[in-house]
Structures are given as structure tokens and as C-alpha cells.
């Protein structure tokens, strides 16, 4: 039998996305001295962790996992982070925003303020301290309009900055992984996945997620049109009252600026149906930090954000 006559397997679109993501992970592992996987505890990073297993087993996953910890966490997410890292046998680096504040590297905005933007300082300091030259992240192009513009391998200068006017051309799947000391790239293996693709993959692969992604009863306050979970940092302010709602989270980030959505979706099937019918983007529904200005994400990314 010759090669061309042989029947080929039928790969689904999810298989194709998976294979491409694995390809990117292996390229990063092969071309960089010291890559790191950024793990937020959210669904996208849970998917990336699974993809890393698929890329490198039965060998070791050849990079540590880093969490940039704002200190404003959902307890479920931290539990999930620790148990996944232990299961996989990877080194977990926790870079703490609180520490950046305590050492005067980042301004103290008060205990309740969103620390989303401060993460950049902590992230860049950790990159320097550990000598990381590639940071693998779970960002997707369908999330936000500045992300829609970003390369799979996105070059950052020695100051960690992204210059959207001067991105390297990126042809086919030939990723240019060359950087000078002090520079780094951000690598986005699931760039071409949509929110729906992620959920289909979570379902197909039985990927464990923090329980806050599924509908549950929770005390919330309504602020700027968003439902924020009450916590040590989020308390009802003037004219606000806390109430209990059936909600779930579409994204997971800093607890002070990640909103919940009203949702009865408690199973993966229900979530997939909900996401397929959604009329609002996941960040639009849940992220206060993107509402400040038209180019909030671009501005954060230019400074060195994920």
C-alpha cells in the first residue's frame, strides 16, 4: 500500500485546534532557555495545562507554572491551582502582588481596589528574577479587540512592552523564537480557540475546573452593571445592598473586578448551550477592568500585561 492510498483519519476541528496548540507548546519548549506557563486558575489555563500534559508525556513537563497572585482570590481557585500543580508534578512559582506592594514596587491602592493592573509589575519582576524568556498564556483572540491583533508568539522588549505597530511578521507556523537576554515572548497556544471551543474541549477531555464556573448560590452586590461576589474586599457600598443570586463565572480573575453572571447553568451541557446563545462577550459581561476606556486592554498589554 502506498502512502497516498491509505485512508486518512478524520480529525475534528477540536482535534486540529488541539494539535496546533501542542505544536506551539513544543516549539516554545524547544526554542527557549527558560519558558514558564502562566496559570490563572481559569478555564483557559486549565485547558493549557491539559495540553501541556498531552505535549510532553510520558516525559516531564519542561517548565514551571507561575501564578501571579493578586491576593484577591476565590478560595476555590487557589485550591484548584495547588491540587493541579501537585498532580502534574510541576514546580509552582507564586509571584505575589502583595509582596510588590509591601516592597514598594507597586503602589498601595488600598485593600479593596482592583489589583489587576498591578499584576504587570509583579509579572515583569518575576520574569526578570527567574530569567524567563517565554511566558505561555491562555489568552484567546476572540476575547478582546487588542488580543485579536496579537501574534501567537508575541515579542516583548527588555521592558516587557508590547509594541503593536512593530509586531514580527508570523508566517505559516514558522514561529521565530529568537530573543536577546532580557527580552521575552508571550506564547498563546490557544489563540484561535473561541470560548465555545474551550467549553467543548473541557467537556470532551473531562477537564476539572474550579466549581465557581458552574451555577451556585452566592451573595453578590450589583456595581457598574456587574454582579460582584461579596468578600473581604468587596462589601456593599453606599446605596448598595447585598443579595443572594444563582450565578456562575464566565472568567476567573481578580475577585474585585471579575463579575458573575446570573445563570442556572450547572452542567457542561447547560453551559455550552448558554455560551452558544450568549449575546454579550465574556469580558464584556464580567470584567470591570476593560470598561475604563476604549483601549484599556491594549494599554495594559503595552505595559507588559499578559
Amino acid at each position: 500500500m502506498t502512502f497516498t492510498e491509505r485512508a486518512s483519519e478524520q480529525l475534528s476541528q477540536l482535534d486540529v485546534l488541539e494539535s496546533h496548540a501542542i505544536f506551539v507548546l513544543r516549539e516554545v519548549a524547544a526554542e527557549f532557555e527558560r519558558p514558564v506557563l502562566l496559570f490563572s486558575g481559569g478555564k483557559d489555563s486549565a485547558v493549557i495545562l491539559r495540553l501541556a500534559e498531552k505535549a510532553f508525556r510520558p516525559g516531564n513537563i519542561p517548565f514551571p507554572v507561575m501564578h501571579v497572585d493578586t491576593g484577591h482570590n476565590f478560595a476555590e481557585v487557589i485550591e484548584f491551582r495547588d491540587s493541579r500543580a501537585a498532580e502534574l508534578g510541576v514546580e509552582l512559582v507564586v509571584a505575589s502582588v502583595q509582596e510588590s506592594i509591601d516592597t514598594g514596587r507597586a503602589p498601595d491602592l488600598g485593600p479593596d481596589a482592583s489589583r489587576n493592573r498591578l499584576q504587570t509589575v509583579t509579572l515583569l519582576d518575576a520574569i526578570t528574577a527567574h530569567g524567563f524568556d517565554a511566558c505561555i498564556g491562555g489568552a484567546r483572540r476572540d476575547e478582546e479587540k487588542a488580543r485579536a491583533k496579537e501574534r501567537v508568539l508575541s515579542f516583548r522588549d527588555a521592558f516587557g512592552q508590547w509594541d503593536p505597530r512593530r509586531q514580527r511578521p508570523e508566517l505559516w507556523q514558522l514561529y521565530n523564537g529568537r530573543v536577546r537576554p532580557g527580552e521575552n515572548v508571550r506564547a498563546f497556544p490557544i489563540s484561535d480557540w473561541t470560548e465555545l471551543d474551550v467549553w467543548h474541549y473541557v467537556q470532551r477531555e473531562h477537564i476539572e475546573l474550579p466549581p465557581i464556573y458552574f451555577a451556585h448560590r452566592r451573595e453578590v452586590v450589583e456595581r457598574d452593571g456587574m454582579l460582584l461576589a461579596t468578600s473581604r474586599w468587596v462589601r456593599p457600598g453606599e446605596g448598595e445592598t447585598a443579595f443572594t443570586e444563582t450565578v456562575r463565572f464566565r472568567t476567573v480573575g481578580d475577585a474585585t473586578c471579575t463579575g458573575a453572571v446570573r445563570s442556572p447553568a450547572a452542567t457542561l451541557d447547560e453551559i455550552i448551550a448558554e455560551v452558544a446563545a450568549a449575546r454579550v462577550t465574556e469580558r464584556g459581561a464580567t470584567r470591570a477592568d476593560d470598561r475604563f476606556s476604549e483601549s484599556a486592554m491594549e494599554d495594559r498589554k503595552r505595559e507588559g500585561y499578559f
Binding site: A7, S8, E9, S19, H20, I22, F23, K54, A55, R57
Partner: peptide, 14 residues
């Protein structure tokens, strides 16, 4: 693959 042995594999499978 991570999921087990294959009898045959096609492009673009990793």
C-alpha cells in the same frame, strides 16, 4: 498520543 496508541495518524495530528 497522550490518549493512547494509534493504528495510523494523519496530518495535522500532533
Amino acid at each position: 498520543t497522550f490518549d493512547g496508541e494509534l493504528d495510523a495518524a494523519s496530518a495535522p495530528r500532533a
